[in-house]
Design a protein around this nucleic acid. Structure first.
Length: 424
DNA sequence: TCTGGGGTCCTAGGACCC
DNA sequence: TCTGGGGTCCTAGGACCC
């Protein structure tokens, strides 16, 4: 019988910041989204102050200052590297690991020696000792139940970070304790509707009629129901699946009004998206661009538009993609507006090798030298850091760039920012 | 002044074909 | 003038996830 452990890092981004600043232990810490927009991670102390996830920074700034909260801009170079370290440890000690997100992984603990719970405790202690990141471990027969067990492990002090639902004397009590809105797969819309019917916890949901659930919540809802009953519906995936779409978009540091700035940003985001595309060895057959004004500014004139253009031949050649994206952007850009954000999306992704070729158009990356050039650019940027080699179309000063006024050093990925230790 | 970014899956409905 | 059923493909929108 399958036995899954969900290993989830506690307050991951806040914990990453703390791992290098031990003086912050016991102090409230929050991390902001891109552009220092809203709160996306909180230490336990920050949660206790009543700071909600997703709160705009400017709305809670005074409260944060009053309580001496340490505030950080997000530092994805640091979080990505810390995540890789955690995942390497899990991979080393577990027979099979599915990395589910930057801070979570499902581990197959079927048949581990000494029992799953003891194994989970050793995993937890090892990750903490080797990375400084505290994790919680929830163990169960299905992924949905493992999620639920993990939450219980996090919230109930007496489980000390690990909870095994498969050996629990009263698993139904844990389901009754779990609010309907905290069940994996049940979002705010369905939760509201279920509550209105008197279904307020996971146990009550589990007892609902399956046909009713399928009709009202599609097969996704049915899978959630069956998983709560112990029937696995979500398979264990060992490798990451290839993406079907790739998006790159950002809000600007301040409003953009000029077409040339918009075209620079378009080129920059296209460059990012193309890098991701080549990393999974795919080519894109269409590119979509969009732009929008700030919809929170009700008094200002609003405009948003998108344009999707098919590519004659699927490609991952950055200059070709930039040309297509900029041409599309020129067509939807209208002067006289204060733009807040733009983005590009690559779709119709296919494997790079063994794809169909259009008989009427020469594949752009079949020009001799194009593919090797892209490979060389990727290698240089991987070795020496992002944008060591960049495309001129992305601009030099990049006035539109996002704000990150409080970013911590990239301790683990940039030599100049490495942690310094001084002897007294 | 200041409100994130990147994804997946499912379903309904329209266009089009035989 | 009216009448049919079955199928595919694509898109938009909704809901969810981290």
């Amino acid at each position: 019988m399958a036995c899954y452990a969900l290993v989830d890092c506690n307050n991951f981004y806040a914990s990453c910041e703390r791992a290098f600043r031990p003086e912050l232990n016991g102090r409230p810490v929050v991390v902001l989204s891109n552009n220092d927009g809203c709160i996306i991670a909180r230490s336990g102390e920050a949660k206790a102050l009543g700071i909600d996830m997703g709160t705009p920074y400017f709305k809670c700034r005074a409260l944060l200052e009053r309580h001496g909260v340490a505030v950080f801009s997000s530092n994805y170079a640091l979080y990505g590297d810390m995540s890789a370290r955690v995942m390497r440890i899990l991979t080393r000690f577990c027979p099979a690991v599915e990395v589910y997100s930057i801070d979570e992984a499902f581990c197959d603990l079927s048949g581990v020696p000494g029992g799953a719970e003891a194994y989970g405790r050793r995993l937890r202690a090892t990750v903490l000792a080797w990375t400084g990141i505290p994790v919680s471990v929830g163990i169960a027969r299905t992924k949905t139940l493992a999620k639920l067990a993990n939450r219980f492990a996090k919230k109930q002090d007496r489980s000390r970070g690990v909870f095994d639902l498969t050996t629990s004397p009263d698993p139904d009590r844990v389901l009754r304790w779990t609010d309907i809105g905290d069940v994996w797969g049940i979002g705010p819309r369905h939760a509201k509707r279920l509550r209105a019917m008197g279904v307020t916890n996971a146990l009550q949901f589990r007892e609902l009629d399956r046909d009713w659930v399928k009709k009202k919540m599609t097969v996704s809802g049915l899978h959630t129901l069956l998983e709560l009953r112990g029937l696995p519906c979500h398979d264990f995936a060992s490798g990451p699946a290839d993406k079907k779409t790739i998006v790159s978009s950002r809000s600007f540091g301040h409003p953009v009004t000029r077409l040339d700035h918009m075209l620079e940003a378009t080129a920059q985001y296209t460059t990012r998206a193309a890098e991701k595309l080549r990393k999974q060895q795919s080519v894109a057959s269409a590119i979509l661009v969009y732009l929008q004004t700030n919809s929170f500014r009700l008094g200002q004139p609003q405009y948003a538009n998108t344009l999707s253009v098919p590519l004659a031949v699927a490609t991952n050649h950055t200059p070709t993609l930039i040309r297509a994206a900029q041409t599309a952007m020129e067509r939807i850009f209208k002067p006289g507006y204060q733009y807040k954000k733009c983005g590009v999306m690559l779709s119709g992704l296919e494997p790079e090798h063994g794809r169909w070729l259009n008989l009427l158009a020469l594949p752009p990356d079949h020009r001799p030298g194009d593919a090797p050039l892209m490979r060389a650019v990727d290698r240089v940027n991987h070795r020496w850091g992002r944008d060591t080699v960049a495309f001129a179309a992305s601009g030099i000063t990049r006035d539109w760039r996002m704000k990150r006024d409080m970013r911590s050093p990239r301790y683990t990925t940039v030599w100049e920012e490495i942690l310094q230790v001084r002897a007294k």
